[in-house]
Amino acid sequence: MVAAIASDHAVRGSTLTLREVSHRFDLEGQPLPVLDRISLQVGRGEFVALLGPSGCGKSTLLRLVAGLDTPTAGSLLTEGREIEAPDPSRVVVFQDPTLYPWRTVWSNVALGLEARGLLRTHRGRIEDALRLVGLTGFANAYPHQLSGGMAQRAALARALVNDPKLLILDEPLGQLDSLTRIAMQAELVSLWQRSSFTALLVTHDVEEALLLAGRVIVLSDRPARIKAEVVNSQPYPRHRGDPHFVELRREVFEQLGLDEAW
């Protein structure tokens, strides 16, 4: 594992393959299908967004990728190997920061290293991660002393300290106010550019998906199927007012069946 952390920058991101992934929940004896034969190929270091209406099963898909649940049918592979259990190379940032309230920001960020017994050798990484998300002065603060945006930054640092090959972002900016949100979107892009991990973002915000991702996968209502794929090859930073951006946004809304509103 130590070798994995020190591996080469250029190939740090991992690939992700979804083959005909279907999933259903058992709701009081009734099967509730949430994912319907999803197939997807994500390349090394790519930033892909999954866009879909609320409750369409996006978060379920992320739990499967993280290895927290197993799919009813189909298979998920990373680097050609089947995903069977959670692994610190695939880290999730949830919508709710879920910091441990009994730990300071520093110890929250230290969680992954501590869990794997790497705290002693890689202590310095915690300070680095805190600097990366701009929380240097808050190492000794408790979560209840942080604002929503700061807590989400701390959660991001907790993920990044493990040097993930695949960062799974489950609407990580969903609970932030719009100003903090815009600032954090730009920060996410620059973090991704600097650390070159593969990123999989779930969101229901069309602009956010197009601002951050190179490829936007549009999902249908539950059970989620892939409806369309929109590629945005514009360089970063992207601008909301840019004519090409506006055109892409219109295209995505059309795919979501909301073009009337525009």
Binding site: P86, V91, G112, A115, R116
Partner: peptide, 27 residues
């Protein structure tokens, strides 16, 4: 204890022992 606490620790590579001693008990 919120199940999200366990999810977080599990994705970060926590063992059962870690989940009991460092997540469940402090919470």
């Amino acid at each position: 204890v919120k199940s999200a606490y366990y999810d977080i620790a599990r994705t970060l590579g926590a063992t059962q022992r870690f989940l009991v001693l460092k997540v469940a008990i402090p919470a």
